[in-house]
């Protein structure tokens, strides 16, 4: 197997005296869909926030490896925007779109870190800037087509349906050209039909060469999508493996169902 694109070693995050994450290891290889599951409050979102630079980890190492250039970067203490530039993008558990901007503009914002024009370009609109602007629009439109929102480009993001907003968030993250995409509960609050569209979308994205790490509570979705699953409980990693291995792991069953159940 090729080298891991994300390597997390002994990641720990303390809030005051509480260990929200306790020595968690995790790795993702190119082309994989990996799920991070666990009961509510297990520390999954905190884990995401550490990876993406919103929190600074207390201990441990996070290393990102660009699969094409092979460049390795240690992410600890990096600013969120720098991390995104390295090729890892995310969505949020409670949708964080730019509500009064249009659907297209939301995706165009995602192109920000791959484009350059500043004051000079904005004011004088030199050919390079114009080309860049066209490229931004074209790419964003293509992405919207991919996530199925190209008919609503001019709609304000807040007017979209719940499922569409989640897809727009994915589209916006894709616009940053990540090789690793982190999805925080992408199916939360979706109806079965929307979930189905989402599964197809995630598969497609993966096929196009993006690796995916997702947090999800919908077990059907997790089991059918993931190549591997990591399970967290009380901040610790309690199991990892293929869906089958995890399903039959006694520690996992105990975490989800409580002490007294016979496995």
């Amino acid at each position: 197997m090729s080298k891991a694109i994300l390597n997390v070693k002994g990641l720990t995050k303390n809030f005051g005296g509480i260990k929200a994450i306790d020595k968690v290891d995790l790795d993702i290889h190119p082309g994989e869909i990996v799920a991070l599951i666990g009961p509510n409050g297990a520390g999954k979102t905190t884990f995401f926030n550490c990876l993406t630079g919103i929190y600074t980890p207390s201990e441990g190492d996070i290393t990102l490896r660009n699969p094409e250039s092979g460049k390795e970067t240690r992410l600890n203490g990096m600013k969120p925007n720098k991390i995104t530039e390295q090729g890892m993008a995310r969505t949020f558990q409670n949708i964080r779109l730019f509500p009064t901007m249009s659907v297209l503009e939301n995706v165009m914002i995602g192109r920000h870190c791959r484009t350059k024009a500043l004051i000079f370009g904005a004011v004088f609109r030199n050919p390079a800037t114009r080309r860049e602007e066209e490229e931004i629009i074209a790419t964003s439109y293509d992405i919207l087509k991919k996530v199925g929102l190209h008919k609503q480009v001019d709609e304000e993001a807040r007017n979209l349906s719940y499922g569409a907003q989640r897809r727009l968030e994915i589209g916006r993250a894709l616009a940053t050209e990540p090789f690793l995409l982190l999805l925080d509960e992408p199916a939360a609050g979706m109806n079965p039909k929307e979930t189905e569209t989402l599964v197809t979308l995630i598969r497609e994205i993966c096929k196009e060469g993006h690796s995916i790490l997702l947090i999800e509570h919908d077990m059907k979705l997790v089991m059918s999508l993931s190549d591997r699953i990591f399970v967290m409980d009380y901040g610790k990693k309690i199991a990892q493996g293929t869906p089958e291995e995890v399903r039959s792991n006694p520690a996992v069953i105990k975490a989800y169902l409580g002490e007294d159940v016979d496995a």
Partner: peptide, 15 residues
């Protein structure tokens, strides 16, 4: 504009 609406999302988008 994006910064006005949501700073955290902005940073996550590489701004």
């Amino acid at each position: 504009l994006a910064l006005r609406e949501d700073e955290i999302a902005c940073q996550a988008m590489g701004i």
